[in-house]
Design a protein around this nucleic acid. Structure first.
Length: 425
RNA sequence: GGAGAGGUGGCAGAGCGGUUCAAUGCACCGGUCUUGAAAACCGGCAAGGGUUUAUAGCCCUUCGAGGGUUCGAAUCCCUCCCUCUCCGCCA
């Protein structure tokens, strides 16, 4: 959520920032509502104050044994007047909040202009796409010919956009996850967490998936509905909900492996083949909770932590700064990591690292105590995949394939694979 | 799933319709005293929102959540949530 004070005081500026994303914000309509809210709220609180003081006087008069009938008469219509004002105010406030909850975060000044992914800016590359002496195959052909990847079985059980992994390939995914978690906890200072995969709507509102993106989520139809997490960012970031941290408790760094569930509504026809875009996939997530003035540096650092995984796996990748039109709802600035996929002969997203500034913190009242003023102030939250395990699995298959159809196992994963050097072992 | 108990400020804990615009204690912060510390004493000590140049004042809201009764609700009524104990079931 954007600071409502900023929204009403610097409306034009905010609108200009949002316009960079292609988001049209009707500043005039908003300000009109806001003006009514102001007078209505001042009015309502006035009446509340009057009711309080009159009720108090009645109490005091009663204690002295005086006749309170005239006092009661004087206050007779106050309740009704107050109730109607309060109802109007509440309706207006919920309209304003609805608008505010549907506004994306303000973009950081250094986000490049552009309407879509084609305008994203490559920041750097690492590694060289491997040169094959044969025609490289994609992960589908590789996995199926090895007998380790089974889309038919998955569709029998659950339909499209699911995968069954067998044997060494299932283990390879587990190896990737363990390797990532170990690296982040042992070397990057993250604390591993195990978190719920089913969450309340409040948690999703806190990170920004709700109310706007309900269609992307799976919801249970149990009594009080749960949502399946679309990313571990949701439970991890919500660890800071309603907390006032002491300055020395920050930064907080959490990592977790979880499955992620996405309805992929609206992506029909995209990546329907293979395991690029699934309803269920595994991911290792990184989340940081930091003081406001530390978030810009933290984004660079968090991104480097995700990069480190690809470097250790010796997978060629590039870092891309997302442009204004391609950046996510809650992010002020985002770097995507794109890994080279020989089967597609292109770089594909494998990690997305974002600085959400105070956007999520405001929604979930995540604060720290300012050591100078002693006052609570909003913290900043960051998240990034470190990295998506399913896509890392694809990248390993395609980049490590050999002429005979076998797949070598990256050196850092071999200890997790019982020492095996190839997928066939 | 069954039965019971309970949810009050950082913690403990009182209050059960107006004298509590939440007592008291602990913790914490400042001060006095002291060579220093402790003790003792004095003072301070929630969050959100509104108004405002203001993190100054003033006002509103918040005693698990939501609704209701009332001039007035932490206190009465209804619904829900959560925690704990015992029983049952279960990885």
């Amino acid at each position: 959520m954007i600071d409502p004070k900023l929204l009403r005081q610097s409306t034009a500026e905010v609108a200009r920032n949002l316009a960079r994303r292609g988001h049209a914000f009707d500043a005039t309509a908003y300000l009109a509502l806001e003006e009514r809210r102001k007078s209505l709220q001042v009015d309502t609180e006035h009446l509340q104050s009057e009711r309080n003081s009159r009720s108090k006087a009645i109490g005091q008069a009663k204690a002295k044994g005086e006749d309170v009938a005239p006092l009661l008469a004087a206050v007779a219509d106050l309740g009704d007047r107050l109730a109607s004002r309060q109802a109007d105010l509440q309706a207006l406030q919920s309209r304003l909040r609805d608008i505010e909850l549907n506004l994306p975060n303000l973009l950081s000044d250094d986000v490049p202009d552009g309407r879509d992914a084609t305008a994203n800016v490559e920041v750097r590359r690492w590694g060289e796409p491997p040169a094959f002496a044969f025609e490289p195959r994609d992960h589908i052909a590789l996995g199926e010919s090895l007998g380790l990847l089974d889309f038919d079985a998955a569709s029998k059980i659950s339909g499209a956009r699911f995968t069954v992994l067998h044997g060494a390939l299932a283990r390879l995914q587990r190896a990737l996850i363990s390797f990532m978690l170990d690296t982040h906890t042992d070397e990057h200072g993250y604390q591993e967490a195990y978190v719920p995969y089913l969450v309340h709507d409040l948690a999703l509102e806190g990170t920004g998936q709700l109310p706007k993106f309900a269609a992307d989520l799976f919801r249970t139809d149990s009594g009080t509905p749960f949502y399946l997490i679309p990313t571990a960012e949701v439970p991890l970031t919500n660890l800071a909900r309603d907390v006032i941290f002491e300055a020395d408790q920050l930064p907080l760094r959490y990592t977790a492996h979880t499955p992620c569930f996405r309805s992929e509504a609206g992506s029909y026809g995209q990546d329907t083949r293979g395991m690029i875009r699934q309803h269920q996939f595994e991911k290792v997530e990184l989340v940081q909770v930091v003081a406001a003035d530390a978030s810009a540096a933290a984004l660079e650092e968090l991104t480097s932590h995700a990069e480190k995984i690809l470097q250790r796996l010796e997978l060629p990748y590039r870092v891309v700064a997302l442009c204004a039109g391609d950046i996510g709802f809650g992010a002020a600035k985002t770097y995507d990591l794109e890994v080279w996929l020989p089967g597609q002969e292109r770089y594909r997203e494998i990690s997305s690292c974002s600085n959400c500034t105070d956007f999520q913190a405001r929604r979930m009242q995540a604060r720290r105590r300012n050591p100078q003023s002693g006052k609570p102030e909003l913290i900043h939250t960051l998240n990034g995949s470190g990295v998506a395990a399913g896509r890392a699995l694809i990248a390993v298959l395609e980049n490590y394939q050999q002429a005979d159809g076998d797949v070598r196992i990256p050196a850092v994963l071999q200890p997790y694979m019982g020492g095996a050097k190839t997928l066939q072992g």
